[in-house]
Amino acid sequence: MAEITPGRAYGFFTDTSVCIGCKACEVACKQWNQLPGNEPVFGDGYDNTGTLDAQNWRHVAFIDNVPDQTAGPGAGKAWLMMSDVCKHCQQASCLEVCPTGAIIRTEFDSVYIQPDVCNGCRDCIAACPYDVIEMDKAKGVAQKCTLCYDRLQGNLEPACAKACPTDSIQFGPVDELRAAAQQRVSDLHDQGVTQARLYGQDDSVYGGLNAFFLLMDEPQAYRLPDADNAVLPSRNNAGGYLGMAGAAVLGVLASLFALRRRREPAVEPGAGDER
């Protein structure tokens, strides 16, 4: 692959239509990032990872829509697999709310949590619309995919993309990936796979996701908000403060009304006795 050059936007095109749910990406990520992983627990048989969290920066989701009767075409329609990851949003909800400046946009245009700056306030977790971040209890800081910041600096493609046997995860400059994705989706449409669609390749969600997807169903099916629901936390600043101001005005008026100067005493004699 060409030199990985700072100043250029890099990301993933994750093509779920060719994902085979092998989880090599999950393991490669843990290996490279030295994540011990969670205690083994039985999930639903195929997905025992459950969600993205502090130990799982890639998570392969399985969506089983296989009909009871003999299934016929698979073609990525009936049993959906998707390797989920931080989207490295152009407009990143997490970065927006972070009070410490721990979350930065790197020279590769990725969204990176600096572990030594983060203080574990968890505001980013409340903000991320994709349930990507979790706090690592041991480390006391928020953790998520780094887009293999260290590997990119060493001109290596991310571990997960490197390990993916079917190239469901493609790493590269975002502009090139977008072109490839357009090509792929139109090929699929030509082949009659009409449910194939791109998610996050344009600015309709969070100004564009540097890690975007080819999906085989509605975004919601993959727990991804659609364009209308992809909204930023800051949208509530104005409304929130205005509402607060309004209440403040009413509250103060009420007080002023109650606290007018008056002639006293209004208290009946004897009230004091009880003390």
């Binding site: 909800s93 709310v97 505001d123 409340a126 903000a127 991320c128 619309p129 909204v231 936390p233 800051s234 509530n236 600043n237 409304g239 929130g240 403060y241 205005l242 509402g243 607060m244 309004g246 209440a247 403040a248």
Partner: peptide, 21 residues
């Protein structure tokens, strides 16, 4: 209240009334 609203959590981010409340 505003802090809660400025997030993407259900309930919190669905209202502008929390600060006042």
């Amino acid at each position: 209240g505003v802090l809660l609203a400025v997030s993407n959590q259900p309930v919190w981010s669905d209202t502008w009334a929390l600060g006042g409340l």
